[in-house]
């Protein structure tokens, strides 16, 4: 299979250049044998994950040397992380952006066209907290939440289109890759902001305080 972590001659497990800036570093895509595509077939992804797990999982190294056991633990953890990232389309896109730009965090940011609406929404939440039983306020909050969910669905559709364009660009379609990355980054920031806001409204509606009682 030509995996970096298996010796091509004897098949023994090899150390992994894990640091992202290390020479020969393996990113999540390469780890499971994919090009940096965003539209990945779920079944193929699971298949590759299972294939590699059979090669590197610690269960199969129990009777080997201590060094090989330690390496299998490390490599297996790496493969598991890659699968976790790639199987979720949003995580996958985040990983790609980090790889292409070298920036680690993608912070939540209000979509530019929604700034005014969101300001009004904050006021609405404030009032709802002060008068928790007010049916009119609750109704308005629910409506706003519905509108945000709609907006989120639109964003997801946009992200799908961007993913398709990105894959064509990778395959040599000539589109401007940095511009696509910037567009995706912008949409992901907005998306995270929408999700946080929708959660906040739920918390207000349920009359909970913000941090306490919240599950991860």
């Amino acid at each position: 299979m030509g995996e970096a972590w298996l010796c091509p001659a004897c098949g023994a497990i090899q150390p992994l250049p894990d640091a992202p800036d290390a020479p020969g570093a393996i990113d999540d895509f390469a780890c499971l044998g994919f090009p940096r595509h965003l539209q990945l077939d779920e079944r193929l992804l699971a298949e590759r994950f299972h294939e590699r797990s059979r090669l590197v999982h610690p269960d199969f190294f129990q009777t080997k040397s201590e060094r090989e056991r330690a390496l299998s633990l490390e490599v297996s953890a790496r493969v598991n992380r890659a699968y976790r990232t790639l199987r979720d389309p949003i995580e996958r896109m985040g990983a790609l952006i980090r790889l292409e730009t070298g920036q680690r965090e993608i912070a939540a940011k209000a979509p530019a066209d929604l700034v005014e609406e969101i300001f009004e929404l904050q006021e609405l939440r404030e009032r709802a907290r002060e008068q928790p039983g007010d049916p009119q306020l609750r109704e308005r909050l629910k409506m706003e939440q519905g509108a945000l969910r709609q907006r989120l669905a639109e964003l997801d559709k946009e992200l799908q289109q961007l993913s398709a364009r990105w894959d064509r660009a990778v395959d040599g379609g000539g589109a401007d890759k940095p511009a696509l990355i910037a567009a995706m980054r912008d949409r992901l920031s907005g998306r995270q902001y929408l999700i946080n806001t929708i959660d906040d409204i739920t918390i207000t509606l349920e009359g909970r305080s913000d941090a306490k009682d919240r599950r991860h």
Binding site: P58, L73, E74, S76, A77, R78, N80, R81, Y83, R84, A211, H216
Partner: peptide, 25 residues
């Protein structure tokens, strides 16, 4: 169970979410 560390304000910051395939790091 999720694994994390304490950050400012007595809040837990998650490093490895629950239901992550193990081994993991």
């Amino acid at each position: 169970l999720s694994l994390g560390i304490e950050t400012l304000g007595g809040v837990m910051s998650v490093l490895i979410p629950r239901n992550t395939t193990i081994p993991t790091s």
